[in-house]
Design a protein around this nucleic acid. Structure first.
Length: 517
RNA sequence: GCUCCGGUGGUGUAGACCGGCCAAUCAUUCGAGCUUCUCGAGCUUGAGACCUGGGUUCAAAUCCCAGCCGGAGCACCA
């Protein structure tokens, strides 16, 4: 009995097992429901520090917080975590907002932590009065050692009165002399609980507040308060903050503030690309990359310049989810998702790299119309034809005398003669039957009405631990005349070449960046 | 060193809380075919994984223990 016979037999006996199930188109991947979320009551926050340009990791975090707020018809707050005057710069507040807008992430409310200094002072004073915080004048190295050894410093035993007057003194004291520390638990296994600093003196003007304040809260204190007073219900953030939940909840407990629900995930990386400001900054300083918008970088600006769309970044976030393992994704995932986004909306153009000339001796001068997109109705583009053409070096290789080829969407040619850099051909019979057409080799071409095009090709910046010296290459060629009318930021496809984003247009030619195949 | 958190095909994820329907999902990648006047897209189809060792159980990717590997934190940064 053959397998087919067995199957037929089984069909007779158990027809129900063979009933054709309608193939359902799989639903797009969605993020899981948010724990404890109530419709209309979710409040999340986007908490950037204005000290640099955001990268794709921030993008993920922004998206998660944005996504859940929208999903539950809630509210997103953009909150600049700007409590370190030495690091923040005014230009970044705006740069971050621009990047968010480009990412198509909107917010309902905008705040700066530095707007709430009076609030931090009030709560700090409360802690002092409760006997839960003390002013410490030990130097930081000594404190660090004591914390390591789980030992108290002598300042713990200051009276409330002492602390109040020292707190007053802090206002004019030199930086580093005093700090306000929380009375935590020196024996805690969680080292952040060992009497952490809440407020410290920073002798540096703040980009927004100027010289108005000298005593600044540290992150844990400001964040613990803000997340509560702003009404944040859910905090989605990466796991480097994991140990701080206990501390922030403890602070809120003392201050009688409500705790938000905290959900953590690992930070993710893109293979071969540095994903932190710490790594990117030196590359810029050493001119390994041209700037924060270098297309090899996974900064939001770099991705934009490479022609990666915000929608693709959203899709990456949904694909990765709020994972606790340490994802290292490949560029191919970003590229593939991006292709799904741009394929249907990218006009097609002809481009030949490493151009070789082709003369078709009997070609007639004419204007033809080519479809902007093969599968969707996006209209036509005009192309002017003479008897002079260029084809790409890739296609040139292997062309021989007497061969018949087709200039794609134009006509068939018969090769009369080939030289090292040029070809002479003549128009040959059109065999336009489906069958004929599918067999003949089709190549890209541009007429002698063309525009110079440089294509910048970004590669991976790192190969293992080492910087790849050839990560950025440029190839030159000719593109059809219509390319000169494109606008910067347009994304189009060069047929049989890849998707590109227009980076620069000037009289001498057009520069594009290759997004991906 | 100490403390937390992880480990499912090459990559990313679902499943784990509540053990059986998991001979393990989806995407990416790679292969084959169809289709297409692109090397793009679309359609069909194939390849490839439960960190290791013990234990509990009729039954373990899932629960327990030990180990190994990876990440994070241990700032008067955020």
């Amino acid at each position: 009995m053959s397998n087919k016979d067995i199957e037929n037999k089984l069909r007779e006996v158990y027809p129900e097992h063979f009933s054709e199930k309608p193939k359902e188109k799989e639903a797009p991947k969605v993020l899981p429901p948010l724990e404890g979320a109530e419709m209309g009551k979710v409040v999340t926050r986007l908490p950037p520090e204005p000290n640099g340009y955001p990268h794709i990791g921030h993008g993920m975090s922004f998206y998660f917080n944005y996504y859940y707020a929208k999903k539950y018809d809630g509210k997103v707050i953009l909150r600049f975590d700007d409590t370190n005057p030495k690091k923040e710069k005014l230009e970044y507040y705006d740069a971050i907002k621009q990047d968010l807008k480009w990412l198509k992430i909107t917010w309902d409310e905008e705040r700066n932590m530095s707007d709430d200094m009076q609030l931090y002072y009030r709560y700090a004073l409360d802690l002092i009065n409760m006997g839960k915080a003390y002013v410490c004048n030990c130097d930081s190295e000594y404190v660090s050692k004591l914390r390591y050894d789980s030992k108290d410093c002598p300042c713990v035993s200051n009276s409330v009165q002492d602390n109040l007057s020292l707190w007053k003194e802090m206002e004019t004291a030199d930086e580093g002399k005093y700090s306000l520390r929380l009375k935590g638990d020196m024996a805690s296994k969680n080292t952040v609980m060992r009497d952490p600093t809440m407020m410290r003196v920073v002798d540096h003007p703040h980009p927004i507040q100027g010289d108005k304040y000298r005593i600044w809260p540290v992150y844990d204190f400001a964040c613990a308060i803000e997340d509560s007073v702003l009404g944040v219900t859910h905090v989605l953030r990466s796991n480097e903050f994991a140990l701080r939940i206990e501390l922030q909840d403890y602070i809120r407990g003392l201050l009688n503030l409500r705790n938000p629900k905290i959900i953590e995930y690992s930070r993710f990386t893109v293979k071969g690309a540095p994903t932190s400001k710490r790594l990117i900054r030196p590359l810029i300083e050493e001119h390994v990359v041209s700037g924060w918008d270098d297309p090899r970088l996974v900064t939001i600006r770099g991705l934009k310049r490479r022609g990666i769309t915000p929608e693709a970044i959203h899709m990456v976030a949904e694909e990765i989810g709020l994972s606790k393992s340490e994802p290292e994704i490949d560029w191919s995932l970003i590229e593939s998702l991006n292709r799904k986004v741009i394929d249907s909306t990218s006009d097609r153009y002809y481009f030949v790299s490493d151009p070789k000339s082709l003369e078709v001796i009997d070609a007639s001068y004419q204007t033809i119309q080519l479809k902007r997109h093969p599968d969707f109705d996006r209209g036509f583009r005009d192309v002017h034809i003479t008897d002079k053409f260029f084809i790409s070096g890739n296609d040139f290789v292997g062309i021989t005398k007497d061969q018949i080829l087709r200039l794609k969407d134009l006509f068939n040619i018969f090769i009369i003669d080939t030289d090292t850099n040029s070809i002479k051909a003549m128009h040959t019979d059109e065999k336009t039957s489906k069958d004929e057409l599918s067999k003949i080799k089709k190549i890209q071409w541009v007429s002698d009405k063309n525009v110079k095009v440089s294509v910048i090709i970004p590669g991976t910046l790192y190969e293992g631990e080492n910087i790849n010296p050839n990560s950025l290459t440029t190839i030159n060629g000719y593109g059809e005349e219509g390319i000169a009318n494109l606008k910067v930021d347009d994304i189009v496809q060069f047929e049989r070449f890849g998707f590109v984003r227009v980076d620069k247009i000037d009289p001498s030619g057009v520069t594009v960046i290759l997004s991906h195949k």
